[in-house]
Write a protein that binds this DNA or RNA. Sequence first.
RNA 1: GCUGGGGUAGCUCAGUUGGUAUAGAGCGCCUGACUGUGGAUCAGGAGGUCGGGAGUUCGACUCUCCCCCCCAGUACCA
Length: 478
Amino acid sequence: MGNLKSNRRIEPRLLKGFRDYPPEEEMARQTLIARVRSIYERHGFLPLQTPALEYAETLLGADYTADNLKDLFGFRGPDDVDMALRYEFTVSLARYIAVNPELALPFRRYQYGPVWRVDKPGPGRFREFMQCDFDIVGTSSMLADAEIIAVMVEVMSALGIRNFLVRYSNRKLINGLSTFAGIPDNRLQDVFRVIDKLEKQGQEAVALELGPGRTDRSGDKIPGLNLEKKQIDYLMRFIDIASAPPSDLLDSVEKLLGNIEVSRQGLTELRLIAQYLSRMEVPADKTRIDITIVRGLGYYTGPVYETTLLDLPEYGSVFSGGRYDNLIERFSSKSLPATGSSFGVDRMLAALIALNAVTLTKATSQVLVTAMDKTLLDNYISLVSEIRRAGINAELFMGETKNLNKQLKYADRIGIPLAVISGSDEFQSGTVTVKDLRAGAERARNLTDRKDWLKAEQVQETIDRSQLIPYLKSKLSG
RNA sequence: GCUGGGGUAGCUCAGUUGGUAUAGAGCGCCUGACUGUGGAUCAGGAGGUCGGGAGUUCGACUCUCCCCCCCAGUACCA
């Protein structure tokens, strides 16, 4: 078994929509996650992890078919079980809550990790990607929704993003409007899906999709919902109100929908959230009610939230969510209100990179101990150990070469800032040489002559061996 | 999924109407020089079955068909 030898060379390739996370990205991502976690935990959210694989029926509901299994990474696995990779965390959260009835409610939890979807990959869009959620389960209070929004604002700020806006609304506004306009409940989801395109496709396209449909730029036909003209007019009139000045936005909505019970309830909830946000001292310029926000997804029942980057509008919503009060109905007859929000880690990271809000580094070592003389190996080993004991990240060069040349090049390429050089000269005089590679790179910019470049003044110093640690520390803090 | 456009070295691309293309450039990479110093410079070098398969032809990177993959728009997004 396993010993069959084949000379076939395997092409090194990745599955469609999958990718590697190179060190510099992964380090930036871990920093991002650490910042986000600290905000979540400051608000009392607890970490929860759930398995990547779940029963197909857990993810899809009882009446899934083999066809449904193809819509996600689903398959018949070991023990003849139909299983699938999770495509989000919410269903797993619901399952967790359903099997842990003793859980103290409201339950605040956050979860991050990879999820998998069989989508067409695009720029910033993959089949395996990192998602980061946080939710409050077990309360209908608008206080929870306000807190979700407040956390979103804090997270964005903590990531170093200044120019963003969290907009929110309430689906109940349109729920009521639709009843009023005679749009059947089972079409509501479609209506939300179409209205969700407002930002990207514009009012005309939305009006067309609510009606007969339209043709996209490549000439492809997009079917419409075929609503009656009167119904479309109602919806478009509502959408028009969105451009009213914020001060009397809600009053305008009230004029149009104030006599519809559901809509009025939605209005009340929106006002409550705004009130709570202000009491929480969430910066007023970071949140705004925008009644065109609806979210395209099916399960939202009330307030919905979206975050846009004002400097990168093409990124769309980078952090969004809403209230979904039907959370565990798949697993229990009980109903459990919940609200939460999530962001795609990779997309957020891409945004941070685009905004220059992160620095990418390729090295974790701060010091490279070079090794040019085999007979001094013991010396090198104790040097690097000593540096590490002092709490400085360091590595000993382990390549095949003795060329100082190559060793410094190695350090330069991955961005290790300092190199410790210790040949026989230094060893005999009880000194070490420390080279500051960053200063060297800076200096090299204006030099074309190699002799000048080699002079190395202000770029390296030979110091007493006993002074090494303090010297390194002062270099690194400066 | 649908519509459209592409696939030539690791990357970006060039390659005249099918035959001096057993395929080139820049960047990158490797080796060496500059006597223990990353940059710059100079000199060498490795690397491609021209996405895969079938066909047309005396002959195909260049033409035809099928497949795969990539890009753009759009749909779906639980």
